[in-house]
Design a protein around this nucleic acid. Structure first.
Length: 190
DNA sequence: GTACAGATTGAG
DNA sequence: TCAATCTGTACT
């Protein structure tokens, strides 16, 4: 079973989408080549009240404006001047909420664990994602989209932790808004 | 205009 | 432990 996720899937509460994205497949079509991987780690950013979000306080900049798009679009930005971070918008237009995709599990190739997408920056480098994907519509794009392949992640398999790399965010850094699949060796930060 | 820090990573 | 090096923000 392969079914592209619809607009409806994304236009729901961000935390719900972040959890349900676990087990879904991210597919990247590059000409005749196709890269794909199962999502195993996500984080939710829920502005404008979330201090860790780029949309904190409701501000809009050239960089973050795609965060305000209708659910199902891409918000991608450069971090530390080097690494791209892939986010998927949620909720309706004007709500600056999104889910950061932090790690993928690539298809088994010779039973070797491939840590090619075990972190948000590595994931984008592997799939060759950058600025040109900003504002891409995941329900229509021919080069990147998400699929439901019938993989079910049970609530008992989902681990919740604090988000990573946001020490400056005060009380917000304590929010258990990072989700990953229990026991998966390919999540970020070995 | 200058200065500084950040949703990270891999090398030392 | 540190440097890579782009963008936004808070200053002068």
């Amino acid at each position: 079973m392969k079914k592209r996720l619809s607009r409806k899937f994304y236009k729901r509460p961000t935390l719900k989408v972040a959890k349900e994205l676990l087990g879904k497949y991210l597919v990247r079509q590059m000409g005749k080549k196709k890269l794909e991987g199962k999502i195993i780690e996500t984080e939710a950013y829920i502005g404008p009240q979330d201090r860790a979000s780029h949309a904190f306080g409701g501000k809009i900049t050239k960089r973050n404006k795609s965060k305000y798009l209708e659910g199902g679009h891409i918000y991608i930005f450069l971090c530390y001047g080097i690494h791209w971070q892939l986010n998927i918008t949620t909720e309706k237009v004007g709500k600056p909420e999104c889910v950061l995709i932090r790690a993928l599990e690539p298809p088994n190739q010779g039973a070797k664990l491939k840590r090619v997408a075990s972190g948000p920056g590595k994931l984008c480098r592997w799939m060759k994602l950058s600025h040109s994907f900003n504002e891409e519509d995941l329900t229509k794009s021919q080069r990147i989209w998400l699929e439901d392949r019938g993989v079910k992640i049970l609530p008992a398999q989902i681990i919740k932790t604090k988000r990573i790399g946001i020490e400056y965010a005060g009380a917000w850094k304590e929010k258990p808004w990072r989700f990953y699949v229990r026991g998966n060796p390919l999540v970020s930060r070995k």
